Simulated scan of single mutants.
Amino acid sequence: MRRWLVGLLVIGVLGGLIALAAISTLLGGVGSGDFMFGAPCGSVLATTDPREAPRVAVRVSDLDAEQRAIVEQIIAIGKQRRLPPRAWQIAIQAGMTESRLHNLPYGDRDSLGIFQMRPSQGWGSVAQVTDPVYEINKFYDKLLMVPGWENQRPGDSAQAIERSAFPARYHQWEPLAVNVIGTVGGDVTEYVKASCTTPLPAPSEVAGRAIQYALGEVGKPYVWGATGPNAYDCSGLMLRSYQSAGVTLPRVAAQQYWAGTQLPVRQAQPGDLLFWGYDTSNPDTIHHVAMYLGNGRMVEAANQTVPLRQRAVNFDEHELMPLAVRPGVPVAKA
């Protein structure tokens, strides 16, 4: 009897080690705590802490004609100057913070224009600091003088130029800036340096547990509005998977999009959430969420016609949102 019990114990331990090895392989080493992966220098960087979300969420589709025109000028001038998308992002976040991307004829003391430049502080004449082409070029001139601007959080670079009494307020516009660039920026690859990398937030240590839970539910039925344990809808599966790992998510997919660190979808890591929307420039239209597993695979509760499943995913899929979300991960500090 004793030998039999020892044999069962050995088998159990080996089984556990095999399971852990499988998850470790799936994660590709994720979960060490100090694991980092890189984004090309100058690429857009969305590492927004949910606590910094704007009080009133602004989507690309909410921009008025003047805001849209100013964004297009920021990007066009950035391209003319061969500046990378990170520079455009910094300008968009600064403009959104200072003037809501309007060319204002007024401001605090003598502050004017998109970036609230002050003639009395040497930014230019009144006519110049209310001329969008001059303003944008002047902002870029100042940006190029900020040490390390390509490698730090965009809002920190905006603060270095604007010198606001409220330095953290620039960060809240990261998702909007990234979505704007994704919508109107066109192909940005030629403007991004591929020879260096900057750190992005490490995948969460809880990702492995969330993945393990989700994979354990594969085969169960899809039921709209269900959150387990016998059936799930798409967001219900994500909710319970991360709940099993100690992370609380909102109930519906559109809210889950704002419930963690955002990053470019092509840099998604195992455990990150992928989203689909009818309008990829407007997160309000999100209708589906799934969990990325790595190596072009994901797990999802798709619809009533199929049970919970794994399937292949392509980052060029129709309606796939430009940002993935990493639940439970704080913002990486520059």
Rank of each mutant, 00 (worst) to 15 (best):
Arg2Phe: 06
Arg2Ser: 06
Gly7Met: 08
Gly12Ser: 12
Gly12Leu: 14
Leu14Gly: 03
Gly16Tyr: 08
Thr25Asn: 09
Thr25Phe: 04
Leu27Val: 08
Leu27Trp: 03
Gly31Pro: 13
Ser32Ala: 05
Phe35Leu: 09
Phe35Thr: 02
Ala39Glu: 13
Pro40Met: 08
Pro40His: 15
Gly42Trp: 07
Ser43Phe: 01
Ser43Gln: 12
Val44Pro: 06
Val44Trp: 07
Arg55Gly: 08
Ala57Met: 15
Leu63His: 13
Arg68Asp: 14
Ala69Lys: 15
Ile70Lys: 10
Val71Gln: 04
Ile75Gly: 02
Ile77Cys: 00
Lys79Val: 00
Gln80Thr: 07
Gln80Met: 02
Leu83Met: 12
Arg86Asn: 08
Ile92Glu: 10
Gln93Glu: 15
Ala94Val: 14
Met96Trp: 10
Pro105Leu: 14
Tyr106Phe: 13
Tyr106Cys: 05
Asp108Tyr: 07
Asp108Cys: 13
Arg109Asp: 14
Ser111Met: 15
Gly113Met: 09
Ile114Leu: 04
Met117Cys: 10
Gly122Cys: 10
Gly122Lys: 08
Gly124Val: 10
Gly124Cys: 05
Val129Gln: 09
Pro132Arg: 13
Asn137Gly: 08
Lys138Ser: 12
Leu144Gln: 13
Pro147His: 03
Gly148Thr: 09
Ala158Gln: 11
Ala165Asn: 13
Phe166Thr: 15
Phe166Gln: 15
Ala168Thr: 05
Arg169Tyr: 02
Arg169Val: 07
Gln172His: 07
Trp173Gln: 09
Leu176Asp: 14
Leu176Thr: 11
Val178Gly: 15
Val180Lys: 13
Ile181Tyr: 08
Ile181Met: 15
Thr183Leu: 07
Gly185Arg: 14
Thr189Asp: 13
Thr198Ala: 02
Thr198Cys: 01
Thr198Gly: 01
Leu200Ala: 00
Pro201Lys: 07
Ala202Gly: 11
Pro203Asn: 00
Ser204Tyr: 01
Ser204Asp: 04
Ala207Pro: 10
Ala210Met: 02
Ile211Asn: 01
Tyr213Ile: 02
Gly216Asp: 06
Gly219Phe: 10
Pro221Phe: 09
Pro221Lys: 10
Tyr222Gln: 06
Tyr222Phe: 12
Tyr222Leu: 04
Trp224Gly: 05
Trp224Met: 07
Gly225Phe: 09
Asn230Met: 03
Cys234Met: 01
Cys234Ser: 11
Cys234Asp: 03
Gly236Met: 09
Leu239His: 09
Arg240Pro: 04
Ser244Ile: 11
Ala245Gly: 02
Gly246Val: 03
Thr248Val: 11
Thr248Arg: 15
Pro250Trp: 09
Val252Ser: 04
Val252Cys: 03
Ala259Glu: 05
Ala259Thr: 04
Thr261Val: 04
Leu263Gly: 00
Leu263His: 08
Val265Asn: 00
Arg266Ala: 00
Arg266Gly: 11
Asp272Lys: 05
Asp272Ala: 00
Gly277Ala: 06
Gly277Met: 02
Ile286Arg: 05
Val289Trp: 01
Val289Leu: 00
Ala290Thr: 08
Met291Val: 02
Met291Leu: 07
Gly296Arg: 14
Arg297Ile: 01
Arg297Tyr: 03
Val299Pro: 03
Ala301Ser: 08
Asn303Trp: 11
Gln304Phe: 05
Thr305Lys: 14
Thr305Trp: 14
Thr305Tyr: 14
Val306Ile: 11
Val306Asp: 12
Arg311Phe: 01
Ala312Tyr: 05
Val325Ser: 03
Ala332Cys: 08
Ala332Pro: 12
Ala334Asn: 14
